[in-house]
């Protein structure tokens, strides 16, 4: 569902509309729209976010810290990081390759390929987990072969990584494809004419042009990798200290009525989400800035 996440170079447009007689609403309508939309924002976005932290500290600092340093929590954090550290680079390499092939060359079936890349976005996370159970589970296609070799994928770490790779699959490609398509291939062709070889061209010409989009994709990919719940839940088996990621750890604690501990673990993920949003906003501002600079160069 990338359509909505593809980043755009915003900038403040309010002045343009507020300063013109023909594009202004009457104050009553304006305050009505502002009031309704901000109330909606506060109830549906702001309050859940604040609730996480309030609940986490309800029993005080000590309980909070204890909940985070217990061995099961630490091992969940480790596994969450591991899943992200493996899936983000894999999808990064894929994203760059796919965007290069699609943006810089013409071939038949290109539009179809883009649609296929989008596929994991529209598949329920539960199904994303299910497919790997069907392949590698005890009754799955490779189930008996794997158990002969004593390799565990489902209810083990490899399954969690696979499911994470699946759900985060399109994130980086989805950012890079439109960006590189918009940039065309003139600069790369110029580099080749000047004698640059393939990787040199990519490194010195393409990469500087796409770095903000790339970073944006990586951040979103990472956030989803660390936060994925449904898909991982299906393949994990919920073995404490072994196959629990942080979101799964939250679920277990919550179901055991250890609310403060559950929210403490949740608050770590919420902080992660906030950091993601901060970096994302920063990247958008930088990208808008360099976009503006580039245009100024064009004009002069």
């Amino acid at each position: 569902m990338a359509g909505a996440s593809a980043f755009h170079l915003g900038g403040d447009h309010a002045h343009r509309f507020e300063s013109r007689a023909a594009t202004r609403e009457t104050p009553l309508v304006k305050w009505l729209i502002l009031g309704l939309s901000l109330t909606f924002f506060v109830i549906f976005l702001l309050m859940p976010l604040i609730a996480v932290f309030v609940e986490a500290f309800r029993k005080g600092w000590e309980t909070y810290i204890t909940a985070l340093v217990e061995p099961d929590a630490l091992s969940a954090i480790r596994l969450t990081l591991l899943a992200a550290v493996i899936s983000v680079p894999l999808n990064l390499v894929f994203g760059v390759c796919a965007a290069w092939a699609i943006a810089k060359f013409e071939f038949r079936g290109k539009q179809f390929l883009i649609t296929l890349i989008d596929l994991p976005f529209s598949v329920s996370p539960v199904i994303a987990g299910l497919v790997f159970v069907l392949l590698f589970g005890a009754q799955g296609w490779f189930g008996s072969w794997l158990s002969d070799k004593d390799i565990r994928i489902i209810f083990a770490v490899p399954g969690i990584v696979l499911a994470t790779v699946f759900v985060t699959f399109p994130f980086i490609a989805r950012e890079l494809i439109p960006l590189m398509q918009a940039q065309g291939r003139e600069e790369e062709e110029a580099a080749v004419v000047l004698g640059a070889r393939g990787l040199q061209t990519f490194w010195y010409v393409t990469l500087p042009n796409i770095k903000w989009g790339l970073m944006y994709g990586v951040i979103l990919c990472n956030a989803r990798a660390m936060g994925e719940f449904g898909a991982v839940s299906v393949v994990s088996g919920h073995i404490r200290g072994q196959t629990n990621t942080l979101p799964l750890h939250v679920e277990i604690l919550y179901n055991e009525y250890q609310f403060a501990a559950a929210f403490a673990a949740a608050s770590v993920l919420a902080v992660l989400a906030l950091v993601t949003l901060v970096i994302k906003t920063w990247v958008e501002n930088r990208a808008a800035q360099s976009h503006k600079d580039a245009n100024r160069d064009d004009a002069s």
């Binding site: 859940p48 976010l49 609730a51 996480v52 609940e55 979103l220 956030a223 660390m226 936060g227 994925e228 719940f229 449904g230 942080l246 979101p247 799964l248 939250v250 679920e251 919550y254 559950a262 929210f263 949740a266 993920l269 919420a270 992660l272 989400a273 906030l274 993601t276 949003l277 994302k280």
Partner: peptide, 10 residues
């Protein structure tokens, strides 16, 4: 950005 499990319990 927020993991769905966190949103759920919040």
């Amino acid at each position: 950005a927020l993991p769905t499990a966190v949103a759920g319990i919040a």
